[in-house]
Amino acid sequence: GLMCLEHEDEKVNMYCVTDDQLICALCKLVGRHRDHQVAALSE
C-alpha cells in the first residue's frame, strides 16, 4: 500500500473527507486531521 507522506513508516489506511486526502492512523490520532471527518478505506 501507499505510505503516509507525514509518517513514512505508516501505511495510509483512511481517507480524510475534509481535506480529500489519504491519511494514516497517526494523522488521525495525533496529526492535523484529528478533528476532521475521516472514512475508513475498504480494500
Rank of each mutant, 00 (worst) to 15 (best):
S42R: 07
E8H: 11
H7F: 00
L41N: 09
C27R: 00
Q37R: 08
V38N: 05
L26H: 15
M3F: 13
C16V: 01
K28F: 04
D20T: 05
L2I: 14
C27P: 06
T18Q: 08
A25S: 12
V12C: 05
L41K: 13
M14C: 13
L26N: 14
T18E: 08
E8M: 14
M14P: 03
E6N: 05
L22E: 15
A40V: 05
E43H: 06
G31C: 07
H33G: 02
V38L: 09
L41V: 09
G1L: 01
L41T: 13
Q21M: 11
C16H: 05
A39C: 10
M3S: 10
A39P: 02
E43P: 08
K28P: 10
D35I: 02
E6Y: 04
S42A: 10
V17A: 14
V30E: 13
C24Y: 03
D35Y: 04
T18A: 09
H7V: 00
E43W: 06
M3Y: 05
C16N: 06
E10W: 05
V30R: 09
H7M: 01
G31R: 04
K28R: 13
R34K: 15
D20H: 08
Y15D: 11
C4R: 01
K28C: 07
A39V: 11
V30G: 13
V17L: 08
L29W: 05
L5N: 07
L29D: 14
Q37L: 03
V17D: 13
D9K: 03
M3E: 04
A40Y: 02
D20A: 07
L26G: 13
C16P: 04
S42V: 06
E43V: 02
Y15M: 08
N13A: 07
G31Y: 06
E10N: 12
D35H: 06
C24R: 00
E10V: 03
V38S: 10
D19H: 02
K11V: 04
L5E: 12
C4H: 05
H33V: 00
E6K: 06
L29C: 11
D9L: 12
C4G: 01
R32C: 09
I23C: 08
A25W: 06
S42F: 01
A40I: 00
H33F: 02
H7P: 01
A40D: 11
C16L: 00
R34S: 08
Q37K: 11
H36K: 11
G31E: 06
M3I: 12
G1T: 05
H33R: 01
G1D: 15
Q21Y: 06
Q21D: 08
C24W: 00
E8V: 12
A39N: 15
H33Q: 01
L26A: 12
C27D: 04
V17S: 14
E8W: 03
L5Y: 09
N13V: 03
C27Q: 00
L5M: 04
L22S: 15
D35L: 06
R34D: 06
C24V: 00
N13S: 03
L29G: 14
G1A: 03
Q21V: 11
K11A: 08
E10F: 07
L5T: 09
C16G: 04
R34G: 11
C4Y: 01
G31S: 04
G1Y: 06
C27T: 02
R32A: 11
V12S: 03
C4V: 00
H7G: 02
L26W: 05
L22A: 15
T18F: 01
L5H: 09
L41C: 14
C16Y: 01
A25K: 10
L2D: 15
E43M: 04
V38C: 12
L26K: 14
R32H: 07
I23G: 06
H33M: 01
N13T: 09
V17W: 06
I23N: 01
V17G: 12
D20S: 09
L22F: 15
D20Y: 02
C16S: 07
L26E: 12
R32K: 13
V17H: 15
D20G: 08
L2Y: 13
C4L: 01
E6D: 07
V12A: 06
S42M: 04
E43R: 09
L26P: 15
R32M: 05
D19N: 08
Q21S: 11
H33A: 01
T18V: 08
V12P: 02
D9F: 14
A40F: 12
C27V: 00
L22P: 15
V30P: 10
V17F: 06
M14S: 14
V30H: 14
L26S: 14
